[in-house]
Design a protein around this nucleic acid. Structure first.
Lengths: 375, 375
DNA sequence: TCGGTTGCTGCAAAGGTTTGCAGCGAAATA
DNA sequence: TATTTCGCTGCAAACCTTTGCAGCAACCGA
């Protein structure tokens, strides 16, 4: 029922190859002819069949974006940025959700492999070796994780965690707990490492609680453990957990920030809405989405997988892989305050609650130009 | 580089058609042969090329899901439900975001048309006639809107708005404002209609503020207008706007619920986290996602667009289109309270703040079986 | 022994597009 | 005028798979 290239050719009295060129190489066809073809195409409602085109060119003009959990407000800004960046280059983004499941991740890459030109793998939970194996099947760019030999874009959560810990140390905290993230998360390992180093360097006790589901309920479930740990400050793997923890602490009668200070990571929109407003480490996730698309499309343009037209690109020439790391920034709000004097719940603790202010810079981080480590 | 069906055929010493059948109709091939073929396929890492398959079968096993704004927490549960429902039937869902832009909607449908078997159009902002036109290009199921002649799944926001208004009337409110949604939203019109009728029936003044961006900032921007309107209760198009409004009112010194009661719609997860917790109308969006996928796949199975193998299905046989409406439920939390006695800001208003409780039923609505209006 | 099943496999067309190559007329050059 | 160049168009192969049909061997029942 839908019009094909052949219908248009017949209607305009030319060969199908001329119709094809009218769309994919307009400069090769006589303006007059072109006009006629375009008119007929419009008339018939013809649109090139992308599947057929993909079959021969080897390029679908689609990008796959695999996300751990679309309901986590951390991801939508990244997704939107990736989509708009892709659209500008006439690509479409297909988003898929894995529910934080490594198996689903693998299956999705397989399923997408033949219908996209490349895949953005966001916060993968699977093993490095599996990622490498999959990268032989379809061009991959990894987000929020470093994998040797593959293009990656990460955010400097190590630096972020360090800033957060130093902020807490500065407020006098000496017993600090970390709520770690899900098993398999590179980000979580990175945070743990950096926070541990910084805490011990500042002479603080440092305990790790986890791994955990990186959700609000995951955070709330830890309230009792946090209370028992006698920590006076907590750094959470992400804002969702931090917010859940604050809720949970509230339920067991522990006040934030008077009794316990809480810091999140991500700076999701929600962090400005809860009470108290959350102190957190802002991550440039829109920039990450844009950058990842650029990296994929860049070396995807160089080495088309196409059957014909491959300009003698041998398959084993190492394409240049870059690893980009974007900067993060601590945003101080109301969920952190000076440590209680010694025994807990010092009554006048409220007096030292700081007003909301920022540590550095006036606006949101525009960290599109983070440090670049090429290889 | 990737192995094709021909490579496998060569390796296992059979014709390509046998390889094809090994995957798409295993019962037609000798178990012994099948074993050999599977072994070779595994060995070579062969996976059927979905684009080529789609070209001849006319079915891609993909579904498009077009969403107004992926960052609106209303949608993720719907998306996830649709994805898992589709996955069960061996389909994949491609999500795309339109930024609430009718033009982007249209372009996306066109772009997706040839690479999916059908499109779920969620909360479309474009005109009815445009939707009908697009539905001739690709099978469509519309979510959150009724379009004559097309399969639709909607939520009974009319009933929800009525319950909300009656709840407010019961608390003594007689000046009620409605924060309407974006231009072109069927849901917004429906809410406005039902709320207007219910308010006037209860003898209340009813004013409409809008249209607005259905976001937190959209709601916050209306705080001043709401204050000036002297309304004592507000129903917002969605939770995001309600939450934004509460923030905004707070900033201009109006307290919720003591001075003004606020009701949202959607019951997003966030509504339980803000202070005060939001009274809202719960909508069954996961059920909506599942239902929409079912409806699409059902009549998509009946009438394959395929070139060959079309079992004499004439193209103009009206496929049966169903319109499903899912039920909603009012959830009463802390953002609504008795109207101030008359002048505003009655000091003892706090005394009547109700504790959190629900109006009906113990759990979330399991409204998969809403009223069904077949046509 | 023969006609008819049954179970499996091969053949070849078809699906819609792109693209290297060749052809052709006209214009430019020698 | 002969020859080359140029601009445009047609030809046909190729991409990878599915599937109706036909062929073939073995087996069954009569």
């Amino acid at each position: 029922m839908p019009a094909t290239i052949r219908d248009v050719a017949r209607a305009s009295g030319v060969h199908i190859s001329t119709v094809s060129r009218t769309f994919s190489a307009p400069h090769l066809v006589n303006p007059e002819t072109r006009g006629r073809v375009l008119a007929c195409a419009e008339e018939l409602g013809y649109r090139p069949n992308r599947a057929a085109r993909a079959l021969i060119t080897g390029r679908t003009h689609n990008i796959g974006l695999i996300i751990a959990d679309i309901a986590n407000p951390f991801f939508p800004p990244l997704i939107k940025a990736a989509e708009s960046q892709a659209r500008q280059r006439d690509y479409h983004v297909f988003v898929a959700d894995t529910n934080e499941d490594p198996i689903a991740e693998e299956e999705l890459v397989h399923a997408l492999a033949k219908q996209v030109d490349g895949v953005l793998l966001c916060s993968p939970r699977m093993s490095n070796s599996m990622i490498e194996q999959l990268s032989r099947e379809v061009p991959l760019v990894v987000i929020n994780r470093q994998v040797a030999g593959l293009p990656c874009v990460t955010m400097d959560v190590g630096q972020g965690a360090r800033s957060a810990i130093e902020h807490l140390l500065g407020l006098g905290h000496r017993r600090i707990a970390l709520l770690s993230g899900p098993r398999g998360s590179w980000t979580s390992r990175e945070i743990r490492r950096a926070a541990g180093v910084a805490a011990r360097a500042g002479g603080a006790e440092f305990t790790v609680l986890g791994p955990n589901q990186p959700t609000e309920t995951g955070g709330a479930a830890l309230a009792e453990q946090v209370r028992r740990s006698e920590a006076t400050a907590v750094l959470a793997y992400n804002d969702l957990m931090a917010i859940g923890l604050i809720e949970g602490l509230d339920a067991v009668g522990v006040r934030v920030p008077q009794d316990v200070s809480v810091v999140g990571i991500d700076d999701i929109a929600l962090s400005r809405l809860t009470r108290p407003k959350l102190t957190t480490v802002a991550t440039p996730n829109a920039a990450a989405g844009r950058t990842a698309v650029d990296m994929l499309l860049q070396h995807d343009t160089v080495a088309a997988r196409g059957s014909r037209g491959g300009r003698g690109v041998t398959s084993d020439d190492r394409r240049t892989t870059a690893q980009v790391m974007l900067q993060t920034e601590l945003v101080i709000r109301d969920s952190t305050a000076a440590a209680p004097a010694d025994g807990r719940n010092r009554p006048d603790a409220e007096l030292v609650t700081p007003g909301p202010h920022r540590l550095a810079g006036p606006g949101r981080p525009t960290a599109a130009t983070g440090g670049v480590v090429a290889s």
